[in-house]
Amino acid sequence: MRRRQALALVTGSLSLVAGCSSESATDSTPTTSKTDTEMTPEPQIRELPTTTPPDPIDCDDDPRPVSRAAGDSYPERANGFELTASKDVVTIGERITFTLTNVGDNPRGVGEKYKYNILRQHDGWEPVYFTTSQAGWTDLGVRVYPGGGFRWTFTATSEGMERRNGHNPDYHVCSPLEPGEYRFAFFGLGGSTISTTFIVEDA
């Protein structure tokens, strides 16, 4: 993949039309179980849809790299949330899952599940994702109860990592996935970003 200078995407908000939010009212409200007179929230894990973008992009037209979370390092825990990977090493063609969990004792607000990025370490953290969108990410807030959170599952190939992200920028991959060190990051914690690293190996 030819090197491109990472350009930050516009981070402004989009206005959401009622009924068009990617997080429905039922999705953001936990189910409850009644024990005697006490209502106990049951944690929910919200899945990232696995829909791929409907149309390929021409990577020779210099699409924008998704450069969010391209800093030197980020913790795996912040603001009461923890980010983990299902495995430390993934072979090209295998599946890998990343999970964001509220590890605190109280409900916490968090940005929506589309505020994620994957980057590769190559003389600094380089974006895997590119987009033709000029917009930023929606500012929908989600209430997450203890034990609840988000889950993202990908196949470790360039096609397997591409995603259509609703009202947010679609993510395209412009080159074959190469062996090396990668980072999955979530930047929906207000002013904080958390990440977890993993290794991609040849099959």
Rank of each mutant, 00 (worst) to 15 (best):
N79C: 05
S28C: 04
W152V: 06
E38L: 14
G109N: 13
D27W: 03
P54S: 13
A8C: 03
D88F: 02
R163W: 06
T50G: 11
C59H: 10
R68I: 03
E201V: 14
S192L: 00
Q44S: 15
E42V: 15
Q134L: 02
P56Y: 14
Y182A: 07
G166D: 15
G149L: 04
Q121I: 00
I57S: 06
F198I: 02
T138N: 07
P41M: 10
F81E: 01
E82V: 06
C20A: 12
N168M: 07
A8D: 11
T101S: 10
Y145C: 04
T51Q: 14
S24T: 15
V173W: 04
V90Y: 02
P146H: 06
S192M: 03
L14Y: 07
A8V: 06
Y129P: 00
G136T: 00
P65D: 08
S195E: 05
S15Q: 13
R4W: 13
G147C: 08
D58P: 09
R164F: 14
P65K: 13
S86F: 03
S15L: 13
G191L: 11
Y114H: 12
R2I: 05
P107M: 04
T197M: 10
T153S: 14
T197G: 15
A135E: 03
P49R: 15
V103P: 02
F186Y: 15
S24Q: 14
P65A: 11
L177H: 01
R3L: 09
E82G: 00
D202R: 12
S24N: 12
T32S: 12
T31G: 13
E47W: 09
E201C: 02
L83K: 07
P54M: 01
T51P: 03
G19A: 07
P107D: 06
W137L: 01
I118F: 08
Y114R: 06
S22F: 10
P56M: 09
